[in-house]
Design a protein around this nucleic acid. Sequence first.
DNA 1: TGCGCCGGCGCC
DNA 2: AAAGGGCGCCGGCGCA
Length: 669
Amino acid sequence: MPILFSFDTETYPIQPGLLAPPLVCASIAQESPGSERLLSAGHARTWLREALRTSDVHVTGANLAYDLGVMCADDPRLVDAVFSAAEAGRFHDVAIREALLDIARGLHGVDPETGRPLGDDEGARYPLTLLVRRHLDLDISADKHAPDAWRLRYGELDGVPLEQWPEGAVKYPLRDARYTLDVHLSQERAASSVPNGGNLHAEADQVRAALALHFASVWGLRTDAGRVEELRHRVEAEWRANRTRFQAAGIFRANGTKDAKRLAQLVTNAYNGTPPVTPPSSRFPEGQVATDRDTLLDSGDSLLEELGKAGKVDKYRSTYLGKLEAGTATPLNPRFNVLVSTTRVSSDYQQLPQRGGVRECHKARPGYVFCSVDYAGLELRTMAQRAIWDIGYSRMAEALLAKEDVHTSAAATFLGESYEALLPRVKAKEPTATSFRSLAKIFNFGKGGGLGAGGMAYHARAKDGVRFCLLAKVADTCGVERVPVRVQGKVKMVCAACVEVSRHYGNRWLDAWPEQRALFGRASALTRNGQLVDAMIPGATILRGGCGYTQWLNTPFQGLGAVGAKLATWRVSREMYVDRRSPLWGSRLVLMVHDELVAELRADCPNRLHDAAERMAELMRQAMREVTPDLAGAIEAEPALSRVLSKDAATVRDPSRRLLVWEPEAKAA
DNA sequence: TGCGCCGGCGCC
DNA sequence: AAAGGGCGCCGGCGCA
């Protein structure tokens, strides 16, 4: 039987650029009441070292990765033992456990009482206050936020002997250690009555990924002052120009803020009193006047159309510039949530615009080079693997394994031609061939999630700027007739001809990949009359309960990709932190974006840099092959080296196949 | 004034 | 019959 301790650290406050602040004390608890102990910083070091050395000791915590980050920063000699214990599955995390339980129940991020989404503070991240309320029926939120709470003040006690600490400062960590352990045990009991054991068998994988991602957060990203200043200059100039232009019409006030009501009035006028509206809500039973880009672009009003085209700089200015500037002084620490309801990872750093110069402000530290490795068409692979497991075959898998370009494959079906006949026409950039390949690509990436004809047409227009009826060359009067379409529960107006084209090629897409027709049929039968069902992420056997039609289609292949990517994240990080024989030793992971890992690789020696990049890509391929065994021959991931982040960064090799650092100039030439 | 809701939009 | 999934962040607005 493992011996279980809870472990919690108290530290100086977290600051920008400092996610692993100095340790002040720690607390531990075991199952028996009264076993809680407060440990000075020195005792915490020796206790953890001993605990990690003892192979039957398991450690649980509330966001334990944070505490392990603190301990490793405090004493780097602990790093090896921490990674070994994680590898052995000896770390636990009550927040991750609760997320796994909720996913199995179909209640992730939802208040079980009301069915409403939880607030930002306790939705995705499961703070201890929420867990204590659920499992121990105690409300400790008031204690945490009391004005005299010690929680954020432990720096004041650094160096003060424990005997001299005020009572409150002693009680708080002891209590949290107790609560954490009690919650852990309560979860153990709850799991037996939740389907699939509450997914707790998957905890160790999630904890390992969380540890690797937290260490990436701690390391963080730096930005380049010159580039940020240049971007600031450009964005501010454009923003001022826009403001001046639209102020006259009253869309902006004199102070620069947007007058949304005035804009709604202008849109209403432009649509002759019947503008597109947002779906009804409790506050707005009739819906609100839509002011999204598409509504503006289709308004027929030249000023509103201009406004629709001008929107992007607002986002850059409000969302990114401040952070980019902060990153010139201290590292930017992305925040990761290791487990959202599909089992994917979420992060506040997953949405860097591809274009517009925001990415390019991020510069690798001196002595390092960015290495970005992404899986080619990852979710096509996982979708094919899922079909093989659920349906018994996959034409998509056959095409991928035969190294077909699957967008051309589907386009060939659309056109009623053979792949062999169409491929040379695509390569020759013949217009019909390339536009049907583009059409097929949109279906390949979107249709498998269960998107309907209207939704496909809407998303193609909104996200890819593609109008199906123009692309398929069946109508040159796109948009003349518009029909309402439900998208994510909202009503959108979409060109009727585009929807018809979408319906037609949606059916042809099912011809191209007949396993999808079988999956759609099964999804339809399972979720008839709004029935909610379980979806299983294959291989990892993680269950997501409460799934509707699209979730049943979507979750297995999204989740399978996440399983492989997390495994890769862990293995890459492990070599970076503890494997002195690996070329990755001393390099650092900085980002994970679903199907892509970005690292700062040590660049002190060109050979080593090449080896590190190749090793990172190889570890990623290996991990994904393990979770998609029938697609193993089709898993592709290549490293791209660059000094700044860029969407354009590409794999560049010299004639002897050695990797070179991509430079923006090289691309222009 | 602060907070929560909502629309809008960035990414995969 | 039809049905995108998943996020996080921002500003504006309505409410307390």
